[in-house]
């Protein structure tokens, strides 16, 4: 179990502004306030490649124009400094989802979450990926 650190840097990527807003609000509600949001994978990728800052978690939508979430995931895994960065993929329910998830798993996605989701599910996914103990946090 890793030490819970609410100050970690999280990137959120979604081309739907309303969705982006809700996810950021959820994260803030969990106490995760060091969040950067991007409305396209291209913008996120530029940041990921250029910044020297540590990135602790990427949270990205799958279906976006030009670059998809999978393209972003592959680019992140292809970067020697970022290949271990935890990555959570967001998808919507649909017939192609299983195929997509298989492909994402091949590119070493850490978790995926299906839209729509509730606060508890989102929190569980993040805490699992970062190997944080939710009980620890409640106790402290």
């Amino acid at each position: 179990m890793a030490q819970t650190d609410l100050n970690i840097q999280i990137l959120v990527v979604d081309d739907d502004k309303q969705v982006l807003e809700v996810i950021v609000e959820y994260l803030e509600y969990f106490g995760l306030c060091n969040v950067k949001s991007f409305s396209s994978a291209q913008q996120a990728l530029t940041y990921i490649q250029d910044t020297r800052n540590v990135i602790d978690l990427v949270f990205s939508d799958w279906e976006m124009k030009h670059l998809s979430g999978l393209d972003l995931l592959k680019a992140v895994r292809g970067n020697p400094h970022r290949k271990e960065t935890p990555f959570i993929m967001v998808t919507s329910q649909g017939s192609m989802e299983r195929i997509k998830i298989t492909r994402a798993v091949k590119s070493k996605v850490d978790a995926y979450i299906i839209k729509p989701f509730r606060a508890e599910t989102l929190k569980n996914k993040i805490w699992d990926v970062l190997e944080w103990n939710q009980e620890d946090e409640q106790a402290s």
């Binding site: 739907d16 309303q18 969705v19 809700v22 996810i23 609000e25 959820y26 509600y29 279906e63 998808t91 919507s92 329910q93 649909g94 017939s95 192609m96 299906i114 839209k115 729509p116 989701f117 509730r118 606060a119």
Partner: peptide, 24 residues
């Protein structure tokens, strides 16, 4: 329908998220 289902995922997330966050 495939396009619509994606759209609905986004809309429902907005509805559920705003309701849940609003409650708190």
């Amino acid at each position: 329908a495939r396009g619509v289902s994606h759209e609905f995922g986004n809309i429902l997330l907005q509805i559920m998220g705003k309701a849940e966050l609003g409650q708190m």
